[in-house]
Design a protein around this nucleic acid. Sequence first.
RNA 1: GCCGGCGUAGCUCAAUGGUAGAGCACCUGUUUUGUAAACAGGCGGUUGCGGGUUCGAAUCCCAUCGCCGGCUCCA
Length: 633
Amino acid sequence: MMSPLEELRHSASHILATAVLRLFPEAKLDIGPPTDTGFYYDFDLDHKFTADDLLKIEAEMKKVADENQPFYRKEVSRDEAVEIIKSRGQERYKLGRLADIPADEKISFYQNGEFMDLCAGTHVRYSSKLKAFKLLSIAGAYHRGDEKNKQLQRIYGTAFPTKDELAAYLVQLEQAKLRDHRRLGRDLKLFHIDEDVGQGLILWTPNGSILRQELQTFISGELRKQGYSQVFTPHIGSLALYKTSGHFPYYKDSQFPPIVEREFMDKLIGAGCSCAEMANRVEAVSAHFAAQVNARTGAETITADRVLPDDQLLHGFMLKPMNCPHHVKIYASQPHSYRDLPVRLAEFGTVYRWEQSGELNGMTRVRGFTQDDAHLFCTEEQVPGEILKCLELVKIILTTLGMADYRVRVGLRDPDSNKYTGEAANWDKAEAACRDAAKTLGVPFTEEPGEAAFYGPKIDFMIRDVIGREWQLGTVQVDYNLPVRFDLTYIGADNAAHRPVMIHRAPFGSMERFCGVLIEHFGGDFPLWLAPEQIRLVTISEKVDDYAKATLDQFVAAGLRASLDTHSDKLGAKIRRAELDKIPYTLVIGQKEAELQSASVRSRAKGDEGTHPVATLLTRFANEVATRALPEK
RNA sequence: GCCGGCGUAGCUCAAUGGUAGAGCACCUGUUUUGUAAACAGGCGGUUGCGGGUUCGAAUCCCAUCGCCGGCUCCA
């Protein structure tokens, strides 16, 4: 059963299709369900819908609504259904949709006026229920969401029970645009993306860098408490490293192409080697290497067609698409006793991934980003406890920042797939550990089969941006694969070598995406400890410039980020500028304040708070920073 | 990558085939100001980039780059 709102929106999508068929009788229908925020319908039509068409269609929809058409349900046999679909010339997609309906389920059509659609229901009783709707956009969408299929034209719209609710939603959409991190990023000078540098590559400007630096300092403190060790690794690694890890060529489509050593490049070009040959050689490995990996994994992980003689192998580097292989090598650089475990290696590691151009989005989807990454090497028994500590870390961060609107997803194996590596028994244990840890953490979570990584289950923290798109931020992943691929060991109490388990975790996910979401979360009104400019002193007349400068020095000496506005504008103009810059505290300084060694406080949250001694303010602000207090609403 | 839309000054926008313009920002001067915009002047553009059509292109056409909304993807 649909909720009343879903029913309304679903009916709106039928009325949309009704209107489209009136205006474009040759249109072929696919499907039109309700969504969280409205509805859509997918059409196959040679004519490309324009913004103008949208207005015409919407007007036609209003007519249909005004005709007060009743919605009728009609249950039919499968043969009758085929007949109805054919008689309406809609067999292109509807017959396929009909075939999806299981044999034991009833087949129904819904009819309103001249329109009839294969549909499980349910619907409103009369089309006149549709009083408040609006068509919003046109988009391409692959039939059945498969890019191998034809791309259809999707019309999105929204509908509400009343005109007031619709109007409120549209206002909300407008307001959301004002919090968009791309807009605030420019207005508050937080970051810049430059065409000449490259798509999806973030330039952190001074203000944004303060934000990022404060977050890094914050989490670094938490990591020290939890026994992590800080490491640094380079931005590139040899191709051999990623062949061992299995990331190349398996994920080559989402990586920047390899950097091939000049010597080998010159040799190949000199020998007239073709592009295709070079590509093959970049991916190839030696027979010895293949045998080694296959022995470790106990399977034909590297197939014979990837093996070439040593002198034909190409040497080069990858821009690192993840930090794990580097961290694995740090672990492997020394022997480990079970007494040393867990080994926790942390790094703000910058990685590069070749995201499709159409997916890039401000700071939330980029091609180069810095993960607040760490890899934990532990015993099987330590896995549950370590997962829980990782989750607690994420929770501390989200709580400190007042981010409560997120969901937790436990990603499990897809029971119907065999793409996973590692033994079933380990998977069972790891999945149970993830589930238990999520329960212990005490946050609502969903278990989603098929969302695991191929190397282990994971727990993701998902959060929405201002326009409702969901992004994965923090993540904790269990990995049985890399310890095998790299033959990692530790010496157990029994004096024998054992295989450690790896946990990958990044509480923020990436600094870029996290900051993007954080900017929208606060709408640019950052808590004092994160605000790039914490305090702005504004003078009333130049007579107090000297006092203002001396006061500024006191705030700066106390470690606060303060500035002084001595422009000759009137006070109102300076206040306005400070408000637009979203400065947490504006300190007004005039003759009166200078005489009393004080400043008049205007807070972003409360407005004018009256005059206070500078000494009091220094203590107050320092305390607010130290406690990482959230902004008052 | 795919479908559609959009690129004019730092920002918001105007000019629809006939001399590229306004407000804000910025700079200079005047003003010395009490909680969200003082006044005046000035600077700023090869209209994303490259071709084409035309006597003449910001405007029409082609190509390309980028951005936006979806779709697909996301180790």
